[in-house]
Design a protein around this nucleic acid. Structure first.
Lengths: 125, 125
DNA sequence: TAGGTTCTCCTACGACTGTAGGAGAAAGGC
DNA sequence: GCCTTTCTCCTACAGTCGTAGGAGAACCTA
């Protein structure tokens, strides 16, 4: 279970952790968008589950509150998530890119940067 | 519920439907990769659920078998899927692209094609 | 028309998710 | 030391998902 599958909420909570580093339950909860923010104990429960999956660990206590820190790296988790969902789409990235372009979320600069790193990769191989 | 969230298996089954158009349960099941292919009734159950979500509908019968066809378009579903995906990547397309490149799922040809259509779009505006 | 084959429909079930309340321990303020 | 606030830990529950078996209807074939 090197890279467990994370659910949406688990991922959101991990995001909050990656962003600011080791945090308490309260800090994480308050960092979530106020709109539809889950209850304190909900965040706590999810953290416990993440702990069981070895995605986070407790490092220390401040007052009586445990501090959690990520064990899994953000890029590893993103990769896992992407692979999972891409598998569903037959592994074809092209339609994704098309959608990104159509919705204007992909700029020419992004593309060029991508192009450059792809070139660099090609040379190495 | 214009665009319901589809689960992984639901999406796989939709893929099979989009690929070949209206099909029977059996056809869909046999179109799924033999490796880990779900039982006939599993596919059937998922189709029923998709029907309840208005993602597919029954069009006719051939023999005693119902024929299902997609109601949701592939691009609409991909769009929805992409939004979810982007949420995980903090709404930024760049890291998404980077991951695609790193895992070799995005070729230079893909990039160039994207580049071209992006250019075309720019001109229009 | 009898018998095998193929489908449908119903039902179930365990795992995973999102959600959160309640009891009680611990810490902090005065 | 007592009271209030804050946390932890436990428990629960309904919804979704993947999974599929069983009963029986419908169909085809000889």
């Amino acid at each position: 279970m090197a890279l467990p599958r994370l659910s949406r909420l688990e991922l959101k909570i991990m995001e909050a952790l990656w962003g600011k580093g080791a945090s308490s339950v309260r800090e994480i909860q308050e960092r979530l968008p106020a709109d539809g923010r889950p209850a304190y104990t909900t965040v706590q429960t999810v953290l416990y589950r993440l702990e069981a999956k070895n995605a986070v660990r407790r490092t220390k206590k401040i007052g009586n509150a445990h501090i959690f820190e990520p064990v899994i790296s953000q890029s590893a988790a993103q990769r896992r998530f992407l692979d999972d969902l891409l598998a569903v789409f037959g592994g074809r990235a092209q339609p994704l890119i098309s959608h990104l372009i159509e919705s204007g979320q992909l700029t020419l600069a992004d593309i060029d940067e991508a192009r450059k790193s792809l070139r660099a990769l090609d040379k190495k191989e």
